[in-house]
């Protein structure tokens, strides 16, 4: 059964990236992997609905900072990243909330072939990934009262998944890239709800094992990078992130980020 699912998945994937990929030499490296240490900064827009707090949508600007490490070996490349997003500007009408999000991830990218898009060769990389996502929300709903503490909630996903990258070198310096990542299985954590039980109230378990249907974390990224010098690369990206957790009170957040990066190959 598991083998069948794997076969179907691979067939769909390879159809997506063009059947020509199978005939290509998968180890020829004509693209830039962006080796070295990179820092990233950007701004974005975040929309969030967390039914632990309420059914209302909060949205607003968010700041994005990240650091990453990439290295291409002979047969595969690996990426390690730490992202930090923060905003106190998320609003639902005249109520604000404060959000902090962290992502710590690692991916192992294997070249699986080449395809052709717009008459240009596109190198395709694919591999497993693991990411820890943490979201913390502090709700400013006590503006008019004399509350001891604001309401808060958190969401956590420790996921295993896959990542796909497409890299298209336009010339020796300029490269277009697109990346997509999705979780498949996660250990999820959430502010446990207080639910009605036979004997009064009980608190749900704060941790659960989640399939992709109950805990989903995905991101997509498109952009271009430019090699300024032999060991310095700059990049501009648009990145979309989506997190959905339905195993507890429903949680969904989506954000767009516009990111500038600089990488130095150590």
């Amino acid at each position: 059964m598991r083998r069948n699912i794997y076969n179907v998945f691979m067939t769909i994937l390879l159809t997506m990236v063009n059947t020509r990929a199978l005939a290509q030499d998968s180890t020829s490296i004509a693209y830039s992997f962006g080796d070295g240490l990179a820092i990233h900064g950007g701004v974005g827009f975040l929309s969030l609905k967390d039914e632990y707090i309420s059914s209302e949508v909060y949205s607003g600007e968010v700041s994005y900072f990240a650091a990453s490490w990439s290295r291409q070996n002979e047969t595969y490349g690996h990426r390690l990243w730490l992202e930090y997003e923060y905003t106190a500007a998320l609003r639902n009408h005249n109520i604000s909330t404060e959000i902090t999000q962290l992502r710590l991830g690692v991916a192992f990218m294997y070249p699986i072939g080449k395809t052709n898009v717009l008459s240009k060769d596109v190198d395709v990389l694919f591999g497993p990934t693991s990411e820890l996502f943490f979201h913390f929300r502090s709700e400013n709903i006590a503006n008019g009262g004399e509350s001891i503490a604001n309401a808060y909630s958190f969401a956590l996903l420790f996921s295993g998944g896959v990542k796909l990258e497409a890299l298209c070198s336009l010339n020796e310096s300029l490269q277009l890239h697109a990346k997509a990542q999705t979780s498949l299985l996660s250990l999820g954590g959430r502010t446990p709800s207080v639910v009605a039980a036979e004997e009064g109230e009980k608190t749900e378990s704060p941790f659960k094992l989640l399939t992709v249907f109950a805990g989903f974390d995905a991101s997509g990224e498109i952009g271009c990078d430019y090699k300024l010098y032999q060991s310095v690369l700059i990049a501009a990206d648009y990145r979309f992130e989506l997190t959905r957790i339905s195993a507890w009170d429903f949680f969904i957040s989506g954000n767009d980020n516009f990111i500038l990066s600089a990488a130095y190959d150590l």
């Binding site: 632990y52 503006n143 009262g145 502010t191």
Partner: peptide, 24 residues
């Protein structure tokens, strides 16, 4: 919050949909 603050009662709480109780 503002309406119930008028009662000046330490037992009053507003509880979010998920169950977080905020003392008023």
């Amino acid at each position: 919050f503002k309406m119930f603050t008028e009662l000046k009662d330490g037992h009053l709480e507003i509880i979010t949909k998920g169950g977080y109780a905020v003392t008023i």
